[in-house]
Design a protein around this nucleic acid. Structure first.
Lengths: 148, 148
DNA sequence: TATTGTTATACTCTATAACTATA
DNA sequence: TATAGTTATAGAGTATAACAATA
């Protein structure tokens, strides 16, 4: 009997442990690309949504605009993205992937997918789908509470 | 279509979002008890495993011994736990819950469970069981990789 | 030599407030 | 007044190295 048996009754604790493992794994996969989880997510979303604004990107990634500035600076320094002026609104900046950025986003995404597939090889598709439903339900619950 | 649609193909990203929501929730539930996630976990494991050592506790919580010192100091300051000398090994300290610590652990645990039940009210028991299996599989995969 | 608890340190992620320039 | 991006800052969590006391 493990000492932390009682904690395993809590979904929050199980999620924490699982996330810690998968994130550590993700970091190992992304390291060769010079990316961490947040820059990778940002680059991928920009590559798939060219012209997205920083505020929209922050909302998509569920993080604060202010915490996105440094990661985007780093991506821009590596010429993976560009911040282009928006004619209609001179406050806003449109985030555009460079060709190198698009290519890296695609390559890294496939590497992550392949690695996840290996990590989850023993998990049935049904269980994975169930986990996706649970995650969605948890996020929906947050929205519900925020509305209260 | 959401801007982060592509990220939702990644189990790691879904887990990150779900964990963030459930952790924020957990913090709200634990705040009235003056506890955060780590002190709560530590107190609960000590209450259920009186006499456990700090190294064992760190292993049970999957964290470094050094990062446990401050939280345990805080619990001891509130007289929720005591660090007692171990006769056989004068290096070691046995972590013992006080009556107040045991009571708080039980109360807080029930509060967390009740709140999780509410949060997961719309999720079927089958899906929850599936999620537990997926979490276990992910942790097992870590053990497998560590052995390589 | 190895282990227990500890200290110090550094890095990442996160949250908040306040600033600027626009709207 | 409000919004987009930015800066500064503080807190929590995590990881590593090194130390004293003990095994």
């Amino acid at each position: 009997m493990q000492a932390d048996a009682v904690l395993r009754d809590l979904a929050g604790y199980r999620l924490k442990r699982a996330f810690a493992v998968i994130q550590a794994d993700l970091q190992r996969v992304l390291a060769p690309f010079g990316l961490r989880m947040i820059p990778f997510s940002a680059l991928l979303v920009i590559a798939r949504n060219p012209g997205i604004g920083q505020g929209q990107l922050a909302a998509a990634l569920a993080m604060e605009r202010s915490n996105l500035v440094a990661p985007l600076d780093a991506l821009a320094r590596r010429d993976l993205i560009r911040r282009e002026p928006v004619p209609d609104d001179r406050r806003a900046l449109a985030l555009m992937p460079t060709p190198a950025g698009t290519a890296l986003a695609d390559t890294a995404f496939e590497a992550v997918r392949a690695h996840e597939a290996r990590l989850l090889a023993d998990v049935s598709p049904e269980d994975l789908a169930a986990m996706a439903r649970v995650s969605a339900a948890i996020e929906a619950a947050e929205t519900r509470e925020a509305a209260e």
